[in-house]
């Protein structure tokens, strides 16, 4: 079921929602791509539909709304620790099925792996999903292989068509529209050009295989694959003091990546997985094996952003398929 409303009416509706929600959606930032005259599609606050980039895949996933890249945990002064104030609005997030599944993975790590993370939980409770439909698969997508192409975990969905927008509402909280109701459910991509099959049992023997050596020479350890990934969830802690007043400071956490130097460095000099091939193994095993052992399904949601972003053209999809063929040969 969906309301058929004009674009103008839809923007009015967003304006009404804005009283209660901060609305985030993928926005094309002109000229903000790494290369000259290229754009970057990232999550930004929006006020009207025209600002939303619906035609291409966002370069960065929606995760940064729940898991800020730099997040202050505490402010300190001489003797006190204060937690940062969080805005009291809820969050409406425009995102695709794969990213909704991605947030489910973040939930597992932040709410179910050991104790609950209080900072994540605050954001998570606020977030409502507005599903962006995918009409066809983008480059490198393999959501169908990962079973993340379909979702019913959305609070609303939209389908802009000409001057109209179909608005499906799945959660009363999102309010009502007065317009005509039509019978409509969201469309999902049912197959992708890229297909990935994950071997059922990635044996530890394989984990030690020379297979990974190739990546030592190819991977440059930049971490782009992690930072664009909707499910990479690691962070590092940082304490700083303010230059202006050395008595005050803050404790933060910032995103980090197992692909980047320093991830395992311990004070005193020990570190592990020094070769990029070992880091690739660690990351791939996490996405396609380790995580599943804990939570019952693969961590990777097949959004293909790591493959989109790798400056060295390393494909995780290709890697997984190669692993499969090695396992089957054995």
């Amino acid at each position: 079921m969906a309301y058929k409303v004009t674009g103008i009416r839809f923007n009015q509706y967003l304006k009404e929602l804005e009283k209660e929600y901060l609305i985030f959606a993928p926005v094309a930032l002109l000229g903000k791509g790494a290369f000259t005259n290229t754009d970057s599609v990232r999550y930004q606050k929006i006020t009207k539909l025209e600002e939303v980039e619906l035609t291409i895949k966002a370069n960065f996933s929606a995760k940064e709304i729940l898991l800020p890249i730099t997040e202050t945990l505490f402010y300190f002064n001489e003797d006190n620790w204060t937690e940062p104030k969080v805005h009291d609005k809820k969050i409406l997030l425009f995102l695709r099925s794969c990213d909704i599944h991605g947030i489910k993975r973040l939930d597992d790590i932040y709410l179910r792996n050991g104790c609950e993370d209080p900072y994540y939980k605050v954001f998570r409770k606020k977030v409502r999903f507005c599903l962006i439909e995918c009409y066809e698969s983008f480059a490198n997508c393999f959501c169908a292989s990962m079973g993340t192409n379909i979702t019913d975990e959305y609070d609303m969905f939209i389908r802009p068509e000409g001057d109209y927008v179909y608005v499906g509402i799945n959660n009363k909280e999102m309010g009502r529209l007065d317009e005509k109701v039509v019978d409509l459910s969201p469309r999902f991509v049912m197959q992708n050009k890229t297909k990935v099959s994950i071997p059922k049992e990635l044996s530890k023997g394989l984990a030690q295989s020379v297979f990974w050596e190739e990546y030592s020479s190819r991977c440059i350890g930049c971490g782009r694959c992690s930072f664009v990934c909707p499910t990479c969830s690691c962070f590092s802690m940082q304490d700083i003091f303010y230059k202006e007043n050395k008595n005050m400071g803050e404790r933060r956490r910032v995103w980090s990546s197992c692909m980047v130097d320093g991830f395992t460095d311990m004070a005193g000099g020990h570190s592990f997985r020094k070769k990029q091939g070992d880091r690739m193994r660690f990351r791939v095993m996490h996405k396609f094996h380790d995580y599943k052992k804990r939570f019952g399904y693969h961590m990777c949601v097949g959004c293909g952003r790591c493959d989109d972003a790798c400056p060295e053209y390393i494909s995780i999809a290709h890697c997984a398929n190669r692993l499969k063929s090695i396992v089957e040969e054995k």
Binding site: K204, C234, S236, R253, F263
Partner: peptide
């Protein structure tokens, strides 16, 4: 290991699963 958070979130101390 490098245990940053101590509570299973930060990922730094993970070995295998």
């Amino acid at each position: 290991r490098k245990m940053c958070c101590g509570v299973g979130k930060c990922g730094h101390c993970k070995i295998d699963d």
